[in-house]
């Protein structure tokens, strides 16, 4: 009886949230059917004619399909590689600082870029990297080198995208890890020190295991938007010159789907991305089970 009563409390407190999800997430999901239709504004969701898989085939058989898939995956994977590890490294470094005011100041500085929108960041990049007036190119010229058109050369755009994203988000991403680090029992460090462990070993045996679960959760969650690759940023940085290496799924959809009011196509692509992300997340969770870090 006590078991049931305990669970009754739990069900009660999760009911409001569940209601929210059902009403605000699942009801609008009914609108996903327009991916299988040819959505007409005046006919609405129910009366628009069926189109079967047409929208999906248009996307997947499109001329640029493999290009945008490759760009999206490559950019996402690079971002994952650097963008996942950098906040951890930063958090670990900050964690070692003994001077409280220094730690807080540096931490505040590092998350500042998160608040500067991509529009501003891009404007700054133009001011720095423009072929003629850009500061960096002026320095290059003054030192006798050739100028580089960073913003328009396809070879430079992916490194620029990844680097600027890492720079912008690392500080912010470290916040969560710092919160997790503060939850590690200091007596564990004490014990390790008494056992003669060096700083490196302490980090390996105490710190990292302490935030291991957070790492796994965040990794799985990051996989859930692996096909997003950062629309806001790429929308600013992609241009006709570097499009071959910077055009991602979302920018393609923006041109083909939204600018031409082809809502059905946009929805179909959304479903495509969601299905792949779903498979990845379920797979990742299974793997995480082995480390006891699964989400469900």
């Amino acid at each position: 009886m006590r078991n049931l009563k305990k669970h009754r409390f739990m069900y009660m407190i999760l009911l409001p949230g569940l209601l929210y999800f059902v009403v605000y997430k699942y009801v609008p999901m009914l609108g996903l059917i327009i991916a299988f239709k040819d959505y007409k504004l005046m006919l609405g969701f129910w009366d628009s004619p069926w189109a079967g898989w047409h929208n999906f085939t248009q996307f997947m058989q499109g001329v640029y399909f493999w290009d945008i898939m490759a760009n999206t995956l490559l950019i996402s994977l690079y971002k994952l590689l650097f963008g996942f590890t950098a906040p951890i490294v930063l958090a670990l470094m900050l964690n070692e600082v003994r001077t409280e005011w220094f730690k807080r100041s540096v931490q505040t500085l590092t998350y500042l870029p998160h608040f500067v929108s991509w529009v501003i960041v891009y404007g700054l990049m133009v001011a720095l990297l423009s072929p003629g007036d850009g500061l960096v190119n002026q320095l290059l010229q003054a030192s006798g080198f050739q100028t580089i058109a960073f913003l328009t050369e396809p070879e430079w755009i992916r490194p620029l995208i990844v680097t600027s994203d890492v720079w912008k988000e690392t500080g912010w991403g470290a916040i969560l890890y710092l919160a997790a680090l503060s939850g590690i029992d200091p007596s564990l460090y004490e014990a390790a020190r008494i056992d003669g462990a060096s700083k490196g070993r302490q980090i390996w045996h105490v710190t990292l295991p302490g935030i291991r679960n957070v790492m796994i959760i965040l990794l799985i969650l990051k996989l859930s938007n692996i096909l997003d690759a950062g629309f806001d940023q790429i929308f600013m940085m992609a241009n006709v010159f570097n499009l071959e290496k910077a055009d991602i799924i979302d920018t393609w959809v923006y041109r083909e789907g939204l600018e031409r009011m082809n809502v059905s196509l946009a929805t179909a692509v959304g479903i495509f991305k969601s299905v792949i992300a779903f498979v990845l997340v379920v797979g990742a969770n299974k793997v995480a089970k082995r480390f006891d870090g699964q989400i469900w």
Binding site: Y24, K25, V27, M29, G31, S224
Partner: peptide, 23 residues
Amino acid sequence: APLLMIVIFTMLFNGGLIPTYLL
């Protein structure tokens, strides 16, 4: 497990702008 799946599913699948606006 099913409850968690309900939550996770919403992270991946999204109804879109117009349905949410209508709601």
